[in-house]
Amino acid sequence: MSQGFMNLKRDVEDFVIRFDAYIETTSTELQQQAVELQQVIEQIKIAIQSLDEQIVDAAIALLATAAAAETIVGLIGLAVAGTVLLVLIGERVAKTIELSDRQGELAEVNKKQEGLAKIKTEFDGLRPDIYLICDKLVLFAEIWSSVRNQSVQFQKSLQGGIDATTNMRFKKELELARKLCTPLVDGLEKYATQLVNRPSRSA
């Protein structure tokens, strides 16, 4: 049982290490995603700006060819200018949709970063309690070991049968054990009561 307390302490400490590593790795990944998405968004904005300029030029060209639409060449020019304008508008719409999608992805990444930061902050607030628990687990292991050793010693003394009740050394050891264990029992009861009555962090 004593080793069980130590194993639990080790498991808690391992969890803290793994949790910290997870937070750091995930945070780095999210930051990288945010940077990459921001770069893509900027490139899309530049492309949209370029398309806007091309659309203006194409609209001017369309108006210019409309004036010369009296001839067959003018009609062909008008059709070409109109087609170019429609293609550019289509590309502009596609880029706008892509921009919206990437901005949505960036918002989601930012939301995850905020959530991760909140979890880390809350976990950091628990660290003193975690360290205290680990310290107490060591103490429990030591107490358990001591109590177990005493009980083994008492068991050996009791194997002597009725002689154990008249053995002064056994009586003194038993009296000492009671004196030592009574504060231990009281302390553990108080500790258990404090744990049960402890206000929750969410309150």
Score class of each variant (00 low, 15 high):
Q3V: 07
V93A: 14
L63T: 10
A79T: 08
A94E: 10
F154R: 04
V147F: 03
I97Y: 05
R102P: 05
A21R: 03
E53K: 13
V138T: 12
K179M: 13
A177K: 02
I89R: 07
G74T: 02
A81Q: 00
D129T: 02
T83H: 14
D14C: 06
I119S: 14
T28I: 06
G187F: 08
A68N: 10
N149Y: 13
Q32V: 05
W144N: 15
I48E: 13
K9R: 12
V35D: 15
A61H: 01
F19H: 03
Q153Y: 11
E173N: 06
G77N: 01
I44G: 02
N167S: 05
L180C: 05
I60Q: 09
V35Q: 07
K9P: 00
T65Y: 00
S2G: 03
T83D: 11
L174M: 05
E91R: 12
V84P: 03
I162W: 05
E29K: 12
L116N: 03
I60C: 00
S100G: 07
E70K: 09
Q31A: 14
D135L: 13
A79Y: 08
G82Y: 05
K45Q: 08
L184G: 05
S157A: 13
G160D: 03
Q150M: 11
N110Q: 14
I60K: 04
I41A: 00
Q54R: 15
D124F: 07
I133Q: 10
A66D: 13
L176W: 09
S202P: 09
S146R: 15
R178H: 09
I76R: 11
V185Y: 12
R18P: 02
F154E: 09
R18C: 04
A117F: 07
L86I: 11
A69V: 04
